Amino acid sequence: MADRVTVLFFAALREQIGQESLSVTIPAGGVPVQVLREQIEKADPAIALAFAEQPRLRVAVNQTLVPFEQMVQPGDEVAFFPPMTGG
């Protein structure tokens, strides 16, 4: 599992993409979330479309909300989801 991250999709993203997770290879030194996002968008048109339709996309690394500049390391879990609303 070296040099891989698990990417999870939640809520409407999961429904649009048609899968709940995938495993992605990243450089051993890690990458910013934004670079990971671009990598998976280029690899899958369904992901690119779903992300484009969610301009306020949120991200968590290892279950902690982070900015897209946050570094992701091999072995991390990255979750993308639309903003949550509640009452």
Results as ranks from 00 to 15, higher is better:
55 P>N: 06
66 V>W: 04
65 L>P: 05
36 L>G: 04
51 F>I: 02
69 E>F: 07
31 V>H: 09
49 L>N: 12
60 A>P: 07
37 R>Q: 06
60 A>I: 04
49 L>K: 15
37 R>C: 09
58 R>F: 11
70 Q>N: 01
41 E>P: 07
49 L>Y: 09
28 A>K: 15
64 T>N: 11
28 A>P: 13
55 P>L: 01
41 E>K: 15
50 A>R: 03
62 N>R: 05
33 V>E: 02
60 A>L: 04
56 R>I: 01
44 D>G: 01
54 Q>A: 11
69 E>T: 15
53 E>C: 10
54 Q>Y: 10
34 Q>I: 09
52 A>R: 08
29 G>A: 14
38 E>A: 15
58 R>G: 08
41 E>D: 03
44 D>W: 05
64 T>V: 11
57 L>P: 07
57 L>F: 14
56 R>M: 11
31 V>L: 12
33 V>C: 00
35 V>A: 03
29 G>H: 14
69 E>V: 06
31 V>M: 09
45 P>Y: 05
44 D>F: 01
71 M>H: 06
28 A>Q: 13
71 M>T: 14
54 Q>W: 08
39 Q>D: 11
66 V>A: 10
28 A>D: 11
51 F>N: 03
47 I>T: 02
30 G>Q: 04
70 Q>I: 01
37 R>W: 14
61 V>F: 01
55 P>T: 06
